[in-house]
Design a protein around this nucleic acid. Structure first.
Lengths: 149, 149
DNA sequence: ATAGGCCTTCCCATGATGGGAAGGTCAAGA
DNA sequence: TCTTGACCTTCCCATCATGGGAAGGCCTAT
């Protein structure tokens, strides 16, 4: 199987297959006499594994660790679980960051008339933010996060 | 004020101030006779605006649009609001993607014994995703994410 | 005058991905 | 057999926002 077929079969682009090989995530593929890379069903299996890990947001480094465990018949599932939960924690941190941004911005947008006049609490907040309230803040950020008076 | 002072006053690194200038996000700073960039309080004001927009997750392109509206005394707040809500939609899409990953992975991790044995549902799922179960629906969404690759 | 802390420009790296050029290979059809 | 077109190869460049670092110039306090 050449790289195009392996790509279709695995859902990993040919570009990325070459990249994974170059960076050592996967071993160098075999070659035909003329230099074409050749892949086995086993290889495609591995590429699919990689693709699914990517879909779960693992970095190439994380995938590398996962592949190591996958190949290690004497692995301990605790190690896999720890890897997974570490990644979940990463994801949750990112989610929280984005959620903060979204809710803040949403609150500002709610306060904006959205008409043909120039005055806009969104710009005002960007220009000179009001300090957030210290006590039990509104979780949505809807109140008192901005406002100019 | 030189770039170091402007950086401290605005919270934008000197590197990034130069980058913003180079890419046209901000106008070229004035220069001393010896070539040092000089900044006014006005400039610092603008840099702070940029920093806050960045903190809200706006891309440089988005910040560029915001700056345009900020400077435009005849702007319509509806335009600002639209920009903000478009960005909120982006953020929410990203959040949903990450949330899918996190909950899928969390469900898999819950199913993993996390002991010293090698068998692990996380690796199994990455290796060969389960077909959708016909019976009990999967409340976590863990299983179907892998379907069609 | 000198030290050392700024500043300047220029180049490189990140991470995962794609675009595209220049050139070789292969399979199918005339 | 020759041509055509789809594939493959390597190599370089771009993304996006950010930082690291080198080489060299400037400024200020001692």
């Amino acid at each position: 199987m050449n790289i195009g077929e392996a790509s279709k079969a695995s859902g990993v682009s040919a570009k990325m297959i070459r990249y994974y090989e170059e960076t050592g995530l996967i071993p160098p593929a075999g070659r035909t006499a003329s230099g074409y890379r050749v892949y086995s069903e086993q290889d495609v299996h591995m590429l699919r594994f990689i693709r699914r890990a990517r879909d779960l947001g693992f970095t190439v480094d994380g995938i590398s660790e996962l592949l190591g465990l996958w190949r290690d018949q004497s692995r301990q599932s605790a190690d896999v679980k720890r890897l997974a939960l570490d990644h979940v924690a990463d994801l949750r941190r990112k989610i929280a960051d984005l959620e903060d941004m979204a809710s803040t911005l949403e609150a500002l947008a709610r306060a904006c008339h959205g008409n043909d006049r120039p005055d806009c609490p969104i710009l005002s907040e960007l220009e000179a933010p009001c300090a957030p309230t210290d006590g039990a803040p509104d979780r949505t950020g809807a109140i008192n996060r901005f406002g100019r008076g």
